[in-house]
Amino acid sequence: MPYQPGDRVRIRVATPSGHYRTPTYIQGKIGVIEAVHGAFRNPETLAYGGDGRPKQTLYLVRFDQTHIWAPAESAGSAPFCQNDRLLIDIYEHWLEPVPEE
């Protein structure tokens, strides 16, 4: 598997026809590999009677909330705080490497 915990990755931007499990809100965002779950069958072919092979490595990817969303404009209590994170499971073919800054 090309990615290890701690690696920076960008979620690919794409809208393939059919069933895919990478929400648009996270596409194009940069996160960090939190964990490697292992290899699982690909839902994009599994959903249509296929065998889901080749399997795809599934990763847990961690994002800073402050990176995903624009700062809130409302005067009310904060929708999220500086340290808050979002973690999401993403299959390998949706990840792109991001060089270290």
């Binding site: 499990r21 779950h37 699982f40 599934l58 973690l87």
Partner: peptide
């Protein structure tokens, strides 16, 4: 409290 880290897990796949 604001210093507690809130971690939202979006379970989009097999987990």
């Amino acid at each position: 409290a604001p210093d507690i880290e809130v971690r939202v897990y979006d379970s989009t796949a097999d987990m």
